[in-house]
């Protein structure tokens, strides 16, 4: 993991001057999330999925068959690496320096995201706890619903600035604000 990339957040320059109070519609840019990608080896798919579910302190995000992201805002990367390292038949890679985590929430969040993604985000179709890879403002991201009005976006670092500017633009009519958050 590259510590330079990890300690200087890619949105540092974008968020300069956004010091005011958070509005109801708000993006919390998680400063130092721990993000791992997990790929199950052939014939270990079910065992790896079962082993991932009970891991404490992390959220499991579905990407593709036998492929997941493990996201944590509370645990450090080293702790998670130890916990995941015990799982047999899986390739685990620390992506904390290569991905950014944005948490968008507020009463109009679905109206904002409707302009960003082409996926039905109604609670019947995309329930709390659901996650999937999708195109968001022309960037391939992993979108997860973590609450009724809360979504989390995991985006590749180099596309984060572009995605952030587009989402802020889509949120302008709803007075979307953004700021760093620790968890």
């Amino acid at each position: 993991m590259s510590l330079t990339l990890y300690h200087r957040h890619v949105l540092e320059d974008y968020l300069a001057g956004f010091g005011e109070k958070a509005n109801p519609n708000h993006i919390a840019v998680i400063r130092r999330p721990a993000i791992f990608s997990i790929l199950a080896h052939r014939a270990h798919e079910a065992a790896v999925e079962d082993a991932l579910k009970p891991v404490e302190g992390v959220h499991l995000r579905y990407c593709a068959p036998d492929e997941w992201l493990v996201v944590s805002t509370t645990l450090g990367a080293a702790v998670i690496e130890n916990r995941l390292g015990e799982i047999a038949g899986a390739s685990i890679v620390d992506q904390s320096d290569g991905r950014a985590l944005l948490r968008i929430h507020g009463p109009n969040v679905r109206k904002i995201l409707a302009k960003c993604v082409a996926v039905d985000l109604h609670a019947d179709a995309f329930a709390i706890g659901t996650s999937a890879n999708m195109l968001c403002c022309h960037v391939s991201v992993n979108l997860a619903r973590t609450g009724a009005d809360t979504f989390e976006i995991v985006v590749p670092r180099s596309f984060c600035g572009s995605l952030f500017e587009d989402v802020m633009e889509m949120g302008r009519e709803f007075a979307l604000t953004a700021a760093f958050a620790d968890s």
Binding site: P65, A118, V119, D120, A132, M134, L135
Partner: peptide, 10 residues
């Protein structure tokens, strides 16, 4: 079959 209904742009 894995992700559901998606637009052709993906």
């Amino acid at each position: 079959p894995h992700c559901g209904t998606r637009p052709k742009e993906e």
